[in-house]
Every structure is written in structure tokens, then in C-alpha cells.
Write a protein that binds this DNA or RNA. Structure first.
Length: 309
DNA sequence: AACGCGGGGGT
DNA sequence: ACCCCAGCGTT
């Protein structure tokens, strides 16, 4: 498809927007009355965590800490406990730092411009654009993994987007962004929804796609992913991340201080016996959590004891 | 540009 | 078993 052809462009926009009108999921953070802070919280939670797992956590968080000031004032240990198993708990830490920055820099009001949003802890290019668009109705280039995949297929005929976002990709996305702000929001959320429900990474449901007639990837016969050989499978069993996760789980379930030995046992617990034992891993995991500010190490008579911050 | 960072559900 | 998920910050 020629991206510069105005008729194709308008037809593509209309196809996505009207498909979204008919197929949008009823997600809690899309309901009328959701605050900008609620949208921001949802976006941070959705960074690498699937929608189904975010839903209950988001309801609990927004009910418990409805405003940035509420979260800013909360005990960090409670914030980390409430984060529970959403994964990547550094996000919870940054979200509280973000809440404090919103209070200090913006009087407790979530800013509307992408530049101010981007300056907040835990808010990167995607989240800044998403909050500007979905919380404030602004025109913004929202490029997440879903949008990149849909545009890559429909416009370029690629099975999956390249590992890193290119300038050309951003420019092309900007070209397709509707001029009207309200319509651009529906376009953005429509592309994301299309990627989540139809144009999925693994088993796309092309017959159900509003773009199937013009999709460059379909027209090319759905060629395979050209980057497949470069994608690294993320190993999980036996990794430091798994050990860190176990330490955090142990601390979430414990009031007050926990001893060094107990935490190291937790870190090693359940490790694959067949795997090469790495005796330094438990200690390394604990040290890295302390370095990240996710765990506090006691001093003096509390030396050798640990707790959530 | 590449890497580290959780955890669980779908295939 | 493997893959993927509304990415970000650091190196």
C-alpha cells in the first residue's frame, strides 16, 4: 500500500476506527470518569504485564490510592505488596516516584504535554504518548508492540517489527495519524485493540481483520519473520530474575525484618536441581535488590536483616 | 543498540 | 517447553 495515497490513508483510518467502535473491550480504565492518574497507573501496569492480570490490580490500586498525592504518601512497603505479582517491581517503585513528582512539579495534576510526561519516573516514549492521548485526548504517536506489529504488517508486509524502533517507523506512524485529535485517539486505541485481539503475534485472525483486503503482509502471502534468527529466547529457569522474584515474594509475605539466611534460602528455593548450581546467585540477587532500592538492608544491630523499604 | 528486569497464560 | 505480553532505564 502506498502510504502517501490520501484515499488509502483515509480508508485505512476509517476501517480501524469503525472496527474499534464495534469491537472495543470494556476495560475498567476505559470507562467514563477514569482520571488521568488512573490512566497513567494502567499504562505503567501494562508495561509488559497482560491485560487480564492488570485488571484486578488496577481496580485495587485506584480504589486505595485514587490520586497521585495518595500514592505519594503511602508506605513504600505497602506499595510493593500491592504490586504483588505483576512483575518487574521496579515499576512500582517508579510509579510512586512518579506520583511524588506529579505532586511536587505539577501540583498533583497529571501533566497533559508529552514532554512533561516523559520527564516523569517510569514514563517512557510509549507511556507519555498513551497518557497524552488516552487521558487527555491529545494527538500523539502511540507506538507500542501492538501498533508496531499492525502497521508493520499492513503497510510494510513484515511479519513482526524489528527489535528496535526506527526513525522511519515513527515517521510513517505520524503520517497515518489522523489530523483531528479525537479521531487520532480512536485510531491509536483501535490499532492497539486490533493488535491485541486480531493481528496477534502468534496466530493472527486475518479473516476477522478490517484491513485484510489491503494488508501488505497478507498480500505477500504472510512471509515469515525476517528477524527470527536474532530474537533471543528469554530463559527464565535458574536466572537471577527468578531468584529476585522469590526474594521479593518472601519479603512481601513477611512483616518487619527477615534474616539473611532465610532470604538466601528463598532465593535458591525451587531452583532446578538439574541445572548447574550457582552458589553466588542468591547473594547476588539480594544485593541487586538492595541496589535497586527494592530491599532495605539493616545496619548495626540489624546487620544481616532485611525488609521492604 | 543491547541488556536486565517477573510472572503467568496461551499454544 | 516455548513464546509473548499497552516498556523503561542503564550501559
Amino acid at each position: 500500500m502506498d502510504p502517501a495515497e490520501p484515499d488509502d490513508l483515509a480508508a485505512t483510518q476509517e476501517a480501524v476506527v469503525s472496527w474499534y467502535d464495534d469491537n472495543a473491550r470494556d476495560l475498567p480504565w476505559r470507562r467514563p470518569g477514569t482520571t488521568a492518574w488512573g490512566v497513567l497507573v494502567s499504562e505503567v501496569m501494562l508495561q509488559q504485564t497482560p491485560v487480564v492480570r492488570v485488571k484486578p490490580a488496577w481496580r485495587s490500586w485506584t480504589s486505595r490510592w485514587p490520586t497521585p498525592a495518595d500514592l505519594a504518601a503511602a508506605p513504600t512497603a505497602e506499595v510493593l505488596r500491592a504490586w504483588d505479582r505483576l512483575g518487574y517491581p521496579r515499576r512500582a517503585l517508579r510509579l510512586q516516584q512518579c506520583a511524588r513528582a506529579v505532586v511536587e512539579r505539577h501540583g498533583g495534576i497529571v501533566p497533559t504535554d508529552e514532554e512533561s510526561l516523559l520527564a516523569l519516573p517510569g514514563v517512557g516514549a510509549y507511556t507519555a504518548a498513551a497518557v497524552a492521548a488516552f487521558a487527555h485526548g491529545r494527538r500523539a504517536v502511540v507506538l507500542d508492540t501492538n501498533v508496531r506489529r499492525v502497521l508493520g504488517r499492513a503497510l510494510e508486509g513484515r511479519a513482526l517489527p524489528a527489535p528496535s524502533l526506527s526513525r522511519a517507523e515513527q515517521e510513517r506512524a505520524r503520517t497515518y495519524l489522523p489530523d483531528d485529535a479525537a479521531r487520532s485517539v480512536r485510531w491509536n486505541v483501535g490499532l492497539m485493540e486490533l493488535g491485541a485481539l486480531v493481528c496477534t503475534a502468534r496466530a493472527p485472525r486475518c479473516p476477522a481483520c478490517p484491513l485484510v483486503g489491503t494488508c501488505a503482509w497478507v498480500l505477500a502471502g504472510r512471509p515469515a519473520d525476517e528477524h527470527a534468527h536474532r530474537r533471543r529466547t528469554q530463559t527464565w529457569h535458574g536466572t537471577d530474575r527468578q531468584a529476585r522474584g522469590r526474594v521479593m515474594a518472601a519479603l512481601r509475605g513477611s512483616d518487619g525484618w527477615t534474616g539473611h539466611d532465610e532470604l538466601l534460602r528463598a532465593a535458591a528455593d525451587g531452583a532446578d536441581p538439574a541445572a548447574l548450581p550457582d552458589r553466588s546467585q542468591p547473594g547476588r540477587a539480594l544485593a541487586s535488590l538492595v541496589a535497586d532500592g527494592l530491599v532495605v538492608a539493616g545496619a548495626d544491630d540489624r546487620a544481616g536483616w532485611y525488609r521492604l523499604p
